[in-house]
Design a binder for these strands. Structure first.
Lengths: 164, 164
DNA sequence: TATTGTTATACTCTATAACTATA
DNA sequence: TATAGTTATAGAGTATAACAATA
């Protein structure tokens, strides 16, 4: 039973995920600059702009962030004039989070840089393998979060066509 | 520009990696039980047993853990009688970390459970896609950490043969 | 002088519980 | 009573700097 034979060494999902995620946060962190709360603030902003989940609780569930943390994140995004809180008229307990004009513009700018940073993190793969990896990861993640594969995760099909 | 068209929503590497890593740590955490420091303690133990990097600094570099944290991790693994510190005779500044007999046995047992937990986290993929994802992630991670693809990352080839 | 490991400190992220306002 | 959001607190995880031992 040699070192390369079994489930040993660096063939370990946790190690791989950790290494890649660290590379991602390092690369993306440099792109995001002074955005409040770095890549987590970015994810919140992106979900607000592109997603359909807009209550703080729905955002927290989608991003795997505790609802108590979401309060602070959104506080600082509001202070930075990137998003705003609106009381939901249908249920006055809920706050609908909407992007400001500035927030939408800033996000569009940041997303270009983030996409480049992502490709740097995956730089050792050729474009085809990169697309396959993105597709598989997106599939697993959407399945884990039980996101309807119809709406936002139709992106999976985009990755496929981009590969071909 | 629909939600599914551009680089939007859940087609985002950071979100995918975070979701999958969270699922991994949840599943694996249950398997590891009272192992000191959970999945990080496991990774240290696995690297000690299978890897060839054995100084604390080398372990820290491999696992992306700060060297000051590595001190505490190894302290507790030593207390649990899973590893031991030995002064390197060739360089008395360094400590060589070696597994105890109990550490080796415990790791072998845990690795079976961890492998199952990993497959649970990737459960939505069929076995072939799962192997492809493992192969690509391992490739990226080894490249990022500049691990010699010869020795431990020859596992990549194992994943390929397992796929075929 | 540089490196390995240790210790102390602080900062970020996260988790829990108590509180409010609405339903 | 139950839920959305807030606040306060404590716990992990991590990063920085200062220190001892060794090279």
């Amino acid at each position: 039973m040699s070192a390369a034979a079994g489930s040993v060494g660096h063939d370990e999902l946790g190690w791989c995920l950790g290494v890649v995620l660290r590379a991602y946060t390092d690369e993306v962190g440099a792109v995001l600059g002074d955005l409040p709360h770095g890549h987590r603030g970015f994810q919140v902003l992106a979900t607000v702009v592109h997603g359909d989940q807009r209550s703080q609780l729905a955002l927290a569930g989608m991003l795997g962030i505790d609802r108590t943390v979401m309060t602070y994140l959104i506080d600082d995004l509001v202070t930075a004039d990137l998003v705003a809180r609106q009381v939901d008229p249908a249920d006055r307990r809920q706050r609908r989070i909407v992007a400001t004009g500035r927030g939408t513009a800033v996000l569009a700018e940041l997303e270009r840089g983030v996409r480049k940073a992502e490709d740097v993190a995956l730089g050792s793969l050729d474009p085809q393998d990169r697309a396959v990896l993105r597709r598989l990861l997106t599939s697993v993640a959407c399945s884990l979060r039980q996101v309807a594969p119809a709406d936002p995760c139709a992106v999976v099909e985009d990755a496929l066509t981009a590969t071909a």
